[in-house]
Amino acid sequence: MTTPQYNNQELLICIAARQMSDNTSAFIGTGIPMLAAALAKRMHAPNLVTFFEFGGVAPDLAMLPHGVGESRTYHRALAALGICDVMETACRGFIEYGFLGGAQIDPYGNLNSTVLGDHDLPKVRFPGSGGANDIGSLCWRTIAIMPHDRRKFVPKVDFVTTAGYLGGPGSREEAGLPPGTGPYRVVTNLALLGYDEQTCRMKLLATNPGVTVDQVVEHTGFELLFADEIGTNPPPTEQELHLLRDEIDPTGLYIGKR
């Protein structure tokens, strides 16, 4: 059997989807998380409950939304609420996974999606927190999805938009964030990373197909920790690719036209 051909986006989506267990809940932002959730629901997690920022709860995700407030986020959903209701559900500890992204990430999983350079006269202005700060504060476990390069994996982010483990062990609790919450995984085009329990620093768990550990190190702008055994992520299966291409994103909005 030959390995199917796939692109980076498809790989990211498949690996992100595999991080979510069945019978749990996930706070879904725009883009790859939407496709990952739709894929997880069709593969191993049919009972995954998805929450969308502006009120959609558990839609069928038959059509891919382009934004977190649009009607496809509550198409045949179980509830159409509002932003306060959804965010307060996370406040009360109901929402397991939260998806995040950004322009920069540091070894403690702190994320920047606000500015490069000085805040008041920035070199580059990004959109800002949106729901990211809330998701990173309130969900139990956050999964960041990032392109892997040294400009993005930096020793210190220019601006902490969203809390990771902040300055290390105990920092979140000291800041007043709910105990037991924090970064869980980072999914990149090169690897799957987690966090060391003792130091709260980012740790390489597995490389993507065809990627070496050295390549991951080379593309990371800070010192990585390594799992005792570094695995290899299985490539997207034919079934995953079929679902992504033919059912989830048939127009190629996110995964590209074929």
Partner: peptide
Amino acid sequence: VRSMLGTDT
């Protein structure tokens, strides 16, 4: 609330 704590936001 319990958002925003500990960050530059």
